Deep mutational scan, measured.
Amino acid sequence: RVIAMPSVRKYAREKGVDIRLVQGTGKNGRVLKEDIDAWLA
């Protein structure tokens, strides 16, 4: 299970990103909004 705040999950869904593919850089591997942006870049 991916650790991410609900707002980040929603952001990823809106961008069409599968959050399971994104490498989290936050505490304990948490996926941050910046990680979604970096994955899209």
Rank of each mutant, 00 (worst) to 15 (best):
R1E: 14
R1N: 15
R1V: 14
R1D: 12
R1Q: 13
R1P: 14
V2D: 07
V2N: 08
V2S: 07
V2Y: 03
V2F: 04
V2G: 07
V2P: 10
V2A: 08
V2I: 14
V2M: 05
I3W: 03
I3H: 06
I3E: 08
I3T: 09
I3D: 09
I3N: 10
I3A: 09
I3M: 05
A4D: 04
A4M: 04
A4H: 06
A4G: 05
A4W: 02
A4Q: 05
M5N: 12
M5I: 09
M5W: 12
M5Q: 11
M5R: 13
M5V: 12
M5Y: 15
M5L: 13
M5T: 15
P6W: 08
P6H: 14
P6D: 10
P6M: 14
P6N: 13
P6L: 13
P6S: 14
P6K: 15
P6A: 14
P6C: 11
S7L: 10
S7Y: 14
S7D: 12
S7H: 10
S7V: 08
S7E: 12
S7F: 11
S7W: 15
S7R: 12
V8Y: 02
V8K: 01
V8W: 02
V8I: 09
V8N: 03
V8S: 04
V8E: 06
V8P: 02
R9E: 06
R9H: 11
R9N: 05
R9T: 07
K10H: 08
K10D: 07
K10M: 09
K10V: 08
K10R: 15
K10W: 12
K10G: 05
K10Y: 12
Y11S: 02
Y11H: 05
Y11V: 03
Y11G: 01
Y11R: 03
Y11Q: 03
A12P: 01
A12H: 00
A12N: 00
A12I: 01
A12R: 00
A12L: 02
A12T: 01
R13K: 10
R13A: 11
R13Y: 14
R13W: 15
R13M: 15
R13G: 08
R13S: 10
R13E: 06
R13T: 14
R13I: 12
R13N: 09
E14V: 11
E14R: 13
E14P: 00
E14M: 15
E14D: 13
E14S: 12
E14K: 14
E14N: 11
E14W: 15
E14Y: 13
K15L: 13
K15H: 14
K15R: 12
K15M: 13
K15Y: 08
K15V: 10
K15S: 09
K15G: 03
K15E: 06
K15D: 01
K15T: 08
G16F: 08
G16H: 10
G16N: 10
G16E: 07
G16Q: 09
G16I: 04
G16Y: 08
V17Q: 01
V17T: 03
V17K: 00
V17N: 00
V17A: 04
V17I: 09
V17E: 00
V17L: 06
V17G: 01
D18F: 05
D18Q: 07
D18T: 05
D18A: 06
D18R: 05
D18Y: 06
D18V: 05
D18K: 06
D18M: 06
D18G: 03
I19R: 01
I19K: 00
I19Q: 01
I19V: 07
I19P: 03
I19D: 01
R20Y: 10
R20D: 09
R20T: 12
R20W: 11
R20N: 12
R20S: 13
R20G: 08
L21C: 08
L21N: 09
L21D: 09
L21Y: 14
L21A: 11
L21I: 12
L21E: 09
L21T: 09
L21S: 10
L21M: 12
V22N: 01
V22F: 03
V22E: 00
V22R: 01
V22T: 04
V22D: 00
V22Q: 01
V22Y: 01
V22L: 09
V22A: 03
V22W: 02
V22M: 06
V22H: 01
Q23S: 13
Q23A: 11
Q23E: 11
Q23M: 14
Q23D: 09
Q23G: 09
Q23T: 13
G24S: 06
G24V: 03
G24F: 02
G24I: 02
G24T: 03
G24A: 08
G24N: 03
G24R: 04
G24Q: 03
T25N: 07
T25Q: 05
T25K: 06
T25C: 04
T25M: 05
T25W: 03
T25R: 07
T25E: 03
T25D: 02
G26S: 04
G26L: 03
G26H: 03
G26R: 03
G26A: 05
G26K: 03
G26N: 02
K27M: 13
K27Y: 15
K27C: 08
K27F: 14
K27W: 13
K27R: 14
K27E: 11
K27V: 12
K27S: 11
K27T: 13
N28G: 11
N28R: 12
N28H: 13
N28W: 15
N28T: 06
N28P: 02
N28A: 13
N28V: 05
N28E: 10
N28K: 11
N28F: 15
G29Y: 07
G29Q: 07
G29M: 09
G29L: 06
G29E: 05
G29N: 10
G29H: 09
G29F: 08
G29V: 02
G29T: 04
G29A: 07
R30D: 06
R30V: 08
R30Q: 11
R30A: 13
R30H: 11
R30F: 09
R30K: 10
R30I: 10
R30Y: 12
V31I: 12
V31E: 00
V31R: 03
V31G: 00
V31A: 03
V31T: 05
V31Y: 02
V31N: 00
L32T: 12
L32C: 07
L32R: 13
L32P: 00
L32A: 05
L32S: 09
K33Q: 08
K33N: 06
K33Y: 07
K33F: 10
K33A: 08
K33H: 09
K33S: 07
K33L: 10
E34T: 15
E34S: 14
E34R: 15
E34L: 14
D35N: 07
D35Q: 01
D35K: 00
D35L: 01
D35W: 00
D35V: 01
D35E: 01
D35R: 00
I36F: 00
I36L: 04
I36A: 00
I36S: 00
I36W: 00
I36D: 00
I36K: 00
D37H: 05
D37R: 06
D37Q: 07
D37A: 05
D37F: 04
D37S: 05
D37K: 06
D37M: 06
D37W: 05
D37L: 06
A38E: 13
A38V: 11
A38F: 13
A38G: 09
A38M: 13
A38Y: 12
A38L: 14
A38Q: 12
A38P: 01
A38H: 15
A38K: 13
W39T: 05
W39E: 04
W39R: 05
W39A: 06
W39M: 08
W39G: 02
W39N: 04
W39Y: 15
W39H: 08
W39D: 02
W39P: 01
L40W: 07
L40V: 12
L40H: 06
L40K: 06
L40A: 08
L40M: 11
A41W: 15
A41C: 12
A41I: 14
A41V: 15
A41M: 15
A41Q: 14
A41E: 13
A41G: 11
A41R: 15
A41H: 12
A41D: 12
